[in-house]
């Protein structure tokens, strides 16, 4: 693990893999909950966790070297099930990239257990990992100017759901009616880092 100073009050912790980042994030959240760490923000991302609002980043950077972080993240009890219709305009292209039929692509996606690696892009947008490397697909060459809210989409190692309509370059494979974000709900975000997620095809229950 590398600890890179970020300005006066933050540290960027860099690790070798996405799974390590998820594990480190879980450990940091645990330590903060137990009062062993004081940080205003703990922001996981692809290969890093950002700690912001630290009283003494240099001291924490030194202490971190002696931490033992479990190699895999703990499994949360809660699983969020997202109802889905595999009706996206890019489903055929994704199926072709996977060398299967569209029906089989939908089945493979719904059979995967996902985990929210991190959030970003928009409130409530989670970057979900779980697809094996040979199922990763590139972004579209030309982004769409408007992706409808509720679109279930793939890019690189990630699956995501657009919480609201926005421009986007991910490959759209389906649609969900789940409300990913509602500012007046508690919690406002349906998905947060660490949440386990399953997509449940509508009519399959």
């Amino acid at each position: 693990m590398r600890a890179l100073p970020v300005g006066e009050r933050a540290l960027l912790l860099e690790v070798a893999s996405g799974e390590e980042a998820q594990s480190l994030h879980a450990e940091l959240v645990r330590r903060r909950a137990e009062g062993l760490l004081s940080a205003a923000e703990i922001v996981p991302a692809a290969r890093t966790v950002l700690l912001d609002g630290l009283a003494d980043p240099a001291r924490l950077a030194r202490e971190l070297t002696s931490w033992r972080v479990p190699p895999v993240p703990p499994r949360e009890e809660r699983v969020v099930e997202l109802p889905v219709r595999y009706d996206g305009p890019d489903l055929d292209a994704v199926a072709a990239a996977w060398d299967v039929t569209a029906r089989e692509a939908a089945r493979l996606h719904a059979a995967t257990e996902f985990r929210v690696a991190f959030c970003g892009f928009a409130p409530g947008f989670g970057y979900l990992t779980g697809l094996p490397a040979h199922r990763h697909v590139p972004r579209r060459a030309t982004p769409r100017t408007a992706v409808p809210a509720g679109s279930v989409a793939l890019a690189g190692p990630y699956t995501g759901v657009y919480p609201r309509s926005s421009p986007g370059g991910w490959q759209l494979i389906g649609t969900t009616d789940a409300v990913l974000w509602h500012h007046a709900r508690v919690p406002a975000a349906l998905l947060s880092p660490g949440t386990r997620v399953r997509f449940v095809p509508e009519g399959a229950g």
Partner: peptide
């Protein structure tokens, strides 16, 4: 993608620095 802080000076592909202010993206 990685976490961004207030005041971060990000350099997009055009090479002109952008200083992140209060409404900056989180990653």
């Amino acid at each position: 993608s990685e976490g961004m802080v207030l005041g971060a000076v990000q350099v997009p592909p055009d090479g002109r620095p952008v200083v992140f202010l209060a409404d900056h993206p989180t990653t």
